[in-house]
């Protein structure tokens, strides 16, 4: 049952609008238990990869791949109904603003208890207790108060914890987190990442962390895939290994308080364009 390979993607391509735009262009990913980061700037296709894996792209996007298997199943072959069952149960998506992922007219308690009923087969009372326990586990200080709150009444950090809590109930094999911390205050950021880490460790899940912050991702993930214009230009275990001029440019463009400079280094776009035209990307 427990096989090492959770996700195996080969030559994933996503086209929008009749093939005119290739948002993702031949991406290969393979992932077992553990954390993979996908880093890139806006328009690099990083979010599109996440959504394509969840099959959440709009119908006018065409997704093709030589191989797209999750836990031994071919995702491209699955019917929409089977896919729907898979999402939220065995694969989950965490988005930037949790308040959009939660139902705005139901209390947190109802939604978390629903997850407990669905995934653990609990009855009503048990489900409520399970919901409270899970909120405590994601270190929400007053779980009872939060259970009775509506999504708009809680902070972004709290919302992300609730999302992670619901995921702990479902025990997904794969979690895709798309900029889970970029709407949060810096001090909450660390705690949310810690929770994600804990979940991956304890449940033996795979995590794909999608972010624009290359330093944060490199500190958190075992491997980083750097995306540029729909392609993975480089896969690294450590920022020190960066060789590609795009990755190096990205790293040096970030101001670093430890290494103050008078002017920031701006990525060399001319060199990038040249490399691209020579097919080097």
């Amino acid at each position: 049952m427990q096989n090492d390979q959770i996700l195996d993607v080969c030559n994933l391509t996503v086209r929008f609008a009749n093939g005119a735009v290739r948002a993702v262009d031949g991406v290969d990913l393979s992932l077992g238990r553990g954390k993979l980061g996908i880093v890139g700037e806006s328009g690099s296709g990083k979010s599109t990869v996440g959504r394509a894996l969840m099959r959440l792209l709009p119908p006018f996007a065409s997704v093709t791949a030589d191989r797209l298997s999750f836990d031994g199943q071919d995702l491209l072959d699955l019917s929409e109904r089977r896919m729907h069952k898979l999402r939220g149960a065995r694969m989950s998506l965490i988005m930037q603003d949790p308040r959009y992922s939660l139902n705005p007219v139901k209390t947190i308690g109802i939604q978390v208890a629903e997850a407990a009923r669905l995934h653990l087969g609990h009855r009503r009372k048990e489900a409520r207790d399970a919901a409270e326990a899970i909120l405590e586990r994601v270190r929400i200080r007053e779980p009872r108060r939060v259970l009775d709150a509506y999504p708009h009444q809680i902070s972004g950090g709290m919302g992300q914890r609730v999302m992670i809590g619901m995921m702990l109930l479902a025990k997904p094999r794969l979690v895709i987190a798309d900029e889970p911390t970029s709407a949060l205050d810096v001090s909450v950021r660390g705690e949310v990442l810690d929770l994600l880490d804990e979940m991956v460790e304890q449940e033996g899940a795979a995590l794909i962390l999608i972010s624009h912050d290359i330093r944060m991702v490199s500190a958190f993930c075992e491997r980083i895939a750097v995306m540029y214009k729909g392609r993975v230009v480089e896969e690294l275990a450590h920022l020190g290994e960066a060789e590609h001029i795009y990755t190096r440019g990205l790293i040096s463009a970030m101001p670093d308080p430890r290494l103050p400079v008078r002017r920031l280094k701006v990525p060399d776009r001319a060199a990038l364009a040249k490399l691209e035209s020579e097919g080097g990307i």
Partner: peptide
């Protein structure tokens, strides 16, 4: 240098310097 006197400022610095020790 991640040097602050109040715990809040220290926490803020530590949180935002996440990953900055892994410079190439």
């Amino acid at each position: 240098a991640a040097r602050a006197t109040t715990p809040y400022a220290q926490h803020l610095i530590d949180a935002s310097l996440l990953g900055h020790d892994t410079n190439p």
